[in-house]
Design a protein around this nucleic acid. Structure first.
Length: 818
DNA sequence: ATATACACGGATCCCCTATTTCC
DNA sequence: GGAAATAGGGGATCCGTGTA
């Protein structure tokens, strides 16, 4: 039988000692299909150089006799082939050793301790990755499959009978076919409970949202008549209803927000409490949770997506939101927020209708966010070629690594192994290498500024100078042609013979460019997502090589990348200054300079000239022209602060970096005051209006006219309370919260304000009060520790000492109060 | 569990010295 | 008068949050 098929969820099983991939997807009619397929299983043995063919033949003979009988399974070497391969920049002879079961490759590798074998590789990819590489059945891509339908078949132990699918196919032929639009069936869910701790309280309600489907299931019977609500008799029945709906709707994706860490494990725990089998998998299995620091919940046949995790790795660095709460993320991406509702213990809740609506709306937001991020999930999955379940949870290092593994074959390269425990420990101990160059600015207000920056600076540097583990030559090169740079206290040499890692990256950067161009031509979400996926890969490649957990970790390459980038940007700064401009600031890959009366056109032409002189694929682009900019001193001393500046363009748009305005651990009053003062100063070019404004704010503060909301300080709890060595204000606030029964844990955003105390307290933490706690804010603290530090060095640029102004005013103020 | 380094700045910690308190 | 307690100064360290 022939079908069109799009693979979604990948799983595998053993049958008679062999591995089979079990892949769930859809056909072009929207029917749910399971396919069974297999692929050859093998590992690589890299041979020592210069072995005679006789020796190799006898080695092969010996390997062919390897048999294992472990874990109740019989595995043997089923064949050995010899190939010319590449491994980390060397041409090698390698044996491809085929075996019965993937899980036994490790044990077979252990048996290959012969002296003729130099290295053993390729047994640690995981069966699914291995399968996708072998069969090129890429997730979320359309194929035309031919195979035998399994219908009440005894084959594979009657697998088709146990699966709730429309068709089960044993694959014989795979052919790629043109793309058909795929609209997945999505079910978003959200629960409300009495206790945050997993399984400790009761689930009060579950909301479910799918296309043209909205439902709230609850056992909290009220008189409210509400659309979409379904009352059940108790919590147990609620769970059963949930199972029923998941089965009935049979989605491709079950989507939650922080559902790996909360909703799904909570439901599982409550189901266990009632001895209910949470059989939502298409084979009626229960969700499985992997242990470890962060839970992940896997459901067979239905892909469970925790949107929070994907947003965190793929999007958070480009977001405005200060937290990744559903509320803020929804606001940023959907322009919609959560319903207002004060969460309380169920015994105190009066307005249940609002609670239900709140719960339902969370699922609506989750559903809409999924739709919003679907193009990204789709393109990431297709580009990196790993199942969407993993893609949605992986960090960027895993994504880079997966991309590499799936593209090694083009380079005839044998995969490197994962670092072992001791490798990782050693790598973590190593000292840090020197990073980016940051120009120390001279504090001041500047006019007519241009900014150039390097596109994918580190990525381009890696490609230009061929920097990677496989091209690193050690300290003394034997090759004639090489790149060299001073770093790590010595000279590092890299081959000029293109390595697979830089070449792969070259392709990534080229693709990124291509899709970006296409996107500009005719924008659409898929192109945007694809361009974005390549951009993220390009930007993570540098970090990957310096990451201790990477297969292709290379400290020398990482250090050299930073060193070459420093060299390149310093040379460009020289040229810019020589041309008659004045560089005022530079950080890593960007340079800000004064036009000094030259026109924008001249600057643009100069940019072209610079680009023609840059090495390799290094490329500068125009960030923009700015009317004014301000750089300030550090709080301590006279020298200019790095990573802190503000710019205004001709349209009056602000670009503020590093200032307290953009830092969430400062109170709103300080941030907004600073923001307005920066705006006024940059708009007017002088400080007059800003000074008046500041005086007003100070007056208001002293008269206690500032609302508490403006004075709340928010700081995240980054570790468990017990691990803090220094007890800072937010730790005290968190302890207070815990005392009165508000749940706090690692990652919580702690809110507090600084209040007046009867006795004179020395430490800030002794004046901490929670937002709901009664008290008066401490004027002195907010003046001297929030407002003043935020604006002081801005006025210093105009030679105005704010401290005097504040002191003087304070005297006045105090008298007034006495 | 896990991309990198550079940077700012508040708050506490910790050690030292000077001053105050206590017997 | 002398020992112990306390205050406060200043650098080191912790900690969170930015930029790139």
């Amino acid at each position: 039988m022939k079908i069109k098929f799009i693979p979604i969820d990948y799983d595998y099983f053993d049958w008679k000692g062999r591995n089979y991939a079990k892949i769930i997807g859809r056909d072009d009619k929207g029917k749910r299909v399971c396919i069974i397929d297999s692929c050859p299983v093998y590992l690589w043995a890299i041979l020592k150089q210069g072995l005679s063919s006789q020796k190799i033949n006898s080695l092969i003979k010996k390997i062919k006799t390897i048999q294992l009988d472990i874990k109740g399974r019989k595995t043997k070497v089923e064949g050995v082939e010899i190939y010319d391969k590449n491994f980390l920049g060397k041409k090698v002879k390698a044996l491809k050793i085929f075996a019965t079961n993937y899980k036994d490759l490790h044990d077979i590798a252990d048996k290959l301790g012969m002296p003729e074998i130099e290295k053993r590789r390729g047994y640690d990819l995981g069966y699914i990755t291995h399968y996708i590489i072998e069969k090129q059945l890429i997730p979320l891509t359309w194929y035309e499959l031919e195979g035998e339908v399994l219908n009440n078949s005894e084959e594979f132990g009657g697998i088709d009978m146990a699966l709730d699918v429309d068709l089960c196919l044993k694959v014989e032929k795979i052919k790629e076919t043109k793309n058909i639009e795929f609209k997945p069936k999505v079910l978003a869910f959200d629960i409300e409970t009495d206790e945050i701790k997993l399984g400790q309280g009761e689930i009060l309600m579950i909301s479910l949202v799918s296309e043209n489907f909205k439902k709230i299931i609850t056992w909290k019977r009220t008189n409210e008549k509400l659309k979409n609500i379904e009352y059940v008799k108790d919590e147990a029945e609620l769970i059963e209803k949930f199972i029923e709906y998941v089965k009935k709707l049979s989605p491709d994706f079950l989507v939650g927000y922080f559902s790996d860490g909360f909703d799904l494990p909570y439901i599982k725990a409550r189901a266990e409490h009632y001895n209910i089998k949470l059989s939502i998998g298409i084979d009626n299995s229960q969700p499985k949770f992997s242990r470890g620091n962060m839970l992940t919940g896997k459901i067979k046949g239905i892909v469970h997506i925790d949107l929070l995790k994907f947003i965190r790795t793929a999007y958070s660095q480009y977001m405005q939101s200060e937290t990744l709460s559903l509320n803020e993320v929804a606001k940023e991406f959907l322009g919609d927020s959560k319903k207002e509702f004060k969460l309380e213990h169920s015994s105190r809740i009066k307005n249940w209708k609002e609670y239900f609506e709140y719960n339902l709306h969370d699922s609506v937001l989750t559903y809409q966010l999924f739709e919003k991020f679907w193009p990204d999930l789709l393109e990431f999955t297709r580009v990196i070629k790993e199942p969407i379940f993993n893609i949605s949870r992986n960090g960027m290092s895993s994504n880079v690594e997966a991309y590499i593994l799936h593209n090694l074959e083009k380079f005839n390269e044998i995969p490197e192994k994962k670092p072992g425990y001791s490798d990782i420990a050693e790598r973590r101990r190593r000292e840090k290498y020197e990073g980016a160059f940051v120009f120390e600015p001279t504090p001041g207000l500047y006019e007519d500024i241009a900014i150039f920056d390097f596109t994918s600076c580190y990525g381009s540097t890696i490609v230009t100078y061929n920097l990677s583990k496989s091209t690193y030559l050690g300290e003394k090169p034997t090759e004639k042609e090489y790149y060299s740079i001073e770093a790590l206290g010595k000279t590092l040499y890299f081959s000029k013979k293109p390595g697979f890692f830089p070449e792969m990256l070259r392709e990534i950067i080229e693709k990124r460019k291509k899709y970006k161009k296409e996107l500009k031509h005719s924008p659409d979400p898929i192109k945007k997502a694809r361009s974005n996926a390549f951009k993220l890969l390009a930007n993570s490649a540098y970090g990957y090589q310096g990451f201790f957990g990477a297969r292709y970790y290379c400290l020398e390459a990482a250090a050299a990348t930073a060193a070459f980038a420093r060299k390149t940007i310093k040379e460009v700064i020289e040229k810019i200054n020589k041309q008659g401009y004045t560089t005022i600031y530079s950080d890593t890959d960007s340079i800000a300079f004064l036009l000094n009366g030259k026109t924008e056109k001249q600057a643009k032409e100069f940019l072209k000239k610079l680009n023609s002189e840059l090495p390799g694929i290094m490329e500068l682009e125009l960030e923009g022209f700015f009317k004014r900019g301000i750089w300030v001193t550090k709080r301590s001393g006279e020298i200019g602060a790095k990573k802190k500046y503000a710019l205004i363009d001709k349209k009056g748009r602000l670009k503020i970096r590093g200032f307290e305005t953009v830092r969430r651990d400062w109170c709103k009053l300080a941030r907004e005051t600073q923001n307005k003062i920066i705006k006024m100063v940059l708009e007017d070019g002088n400080e007059k209006k800003a000074l008046e404004y500041l005086k007003e704010v100070i007056e208001k503060l002293k008269k206690r006219e500032i609302k508490r909301e403006e004075l709340i300080i928010r700081t995240q709890l980054k570790k468990p309370l017990s691990e803090y060595k220094a007890i800072s204000p937010h730790v005290i606030a968190a302890k207070k919260m815990k005392e009165i029964g508000i749940p706090v844990s690692q990652g919580s955003l702690i809110e507090y304000y600084i209040a007046e105390t009867k006795e004179k307290k020395k430490l800030v933490r002794e004046k901490v009060k929670l937002p709901d706690e009664k008290g008066e804010y401490e004027i002195e603290y907010y003046l001297k520790k929030q407002i003043l530090p935020a604006v002081e060095n801005i006025f210093q640029v105009f030679d105005i000492n704010i401290e005097e102004l504040v002191e003087e005013k304070k005297q006045e103020g105090l008298e007034k109060w006495m």
